[in-house]
Design a protein around this nucleic acid. Structure first.
Ligand code: ZN
Ligand code: ZN
Ligand code: ZN
Ligand code: ZN
Lengths: 140, 140
DNA sequence: GTTGTAAATGCAAGTGCTTGCATTTATATT
DNA sequence: AATATAAATGCAAGCACTTGCATTTACAAC
């Protein structure tokens, strides 16, 4: 799972063009150990391909989200962050006061996901959630 | 609970100035039957107070959020929507494909909120959540 | 009622992200 | 290899929202 080239292969198989811009965006996401922002992806790509435009980065991210290949999560800090969908399933608690981030196991939201499917016929996308609130130190 | 003037009273008691702009933003939110956007609030206010600036609307919303007097929810459609915090507790399921919105009872997230407090000492703000995904008709 | 003050506002510029449109290009077909 | 074509890109403008700063103003103190 998630060997290098995984996402690019899937894009190709589904008929999407493997442009250099796309391949570089994909590899920035796959090679990041962490949650990467659009701006960070852009600066990696532009270093090797100087006339790429940031709108191409955003459009590629949009495509990857639509195909469920990456997840987008709001970890605060004014920009959203991206992560390969099949790598390290988990969630986060984000303190709105101090920015602290607590990691959560994916199992915590499974009961909710099941209940929403069963009781409301809704396929909730709870693959990489950020739950906002206050940590114990900032508690209200 | 939530009689007219409720929010304004609380602002006054906490030492915030009751400017005409603030009072009008507050009353737009309190008198809305639904989830209201910043733009909608602004156009109500500007109709009676023509030189108000939209940044004042946003700053007032920021204050009301911080004081837990209103909740902010992303119901899709490119702009976030606001609701009095003490009025009609509930959540939403939002279909990313067709935009359908299913209303949920607040009780659905109580077990999660309790578990996060107990197991992670985290006070999750789950007062008015939008859970994104696909409705049964758009199901993947 | 005047005066003093910090708080709030208006304005303009900035940020993150999106979109319409003309141009370029990956890929299929010959 | 040359050609055709829809898909993808670059560019510039636009949108929702934020921010720094100078000006105004609600409210308290006299
Ligand atoms: Zn994560
Ligand atoms: Zn905190
Ligand atoms: Zn609601
Ligand atoms: Zn749907």
């Amino acid at each position: 799972m998630n060997q290098s080239g995984h996402i690019a292969d899937l894009l190709g198989k589904q008929g999407y063009r493997l442009t250099p811009q796309r391949l570089m965006v994909v590899s920035a996401i796959e090679n990041s150990d962490d949650h990467i922002s659009a701006e960070e992806i852009y600066s990696q790509v532009v270093a090797r391909y100087p006339n790429v435009n940031i709108s191409t980065v955003y459009r590629t991210l949009e495509l990857l989200k639509r195909l469920s290949l990456v997840t987008e999560t709001d970890l605060e800090g004014g920009r959203v962050r991206y992560h390969p969908a099949d790598k390290g399933h988990h969630h986060h608690l984000v303190c709105q006061e101090c920015g602290a981030i607590i990691d959560l196991d994916e199992s915590l939201l499974e009961p909710l996901q099941d209940a929403l499917l069963r009781e409301h016929n809704f396929i909730a996308d709870l693959r990489h959630l950020a739950i906002h609130g206050r940590c114990v130190r900032c508690g209200r």
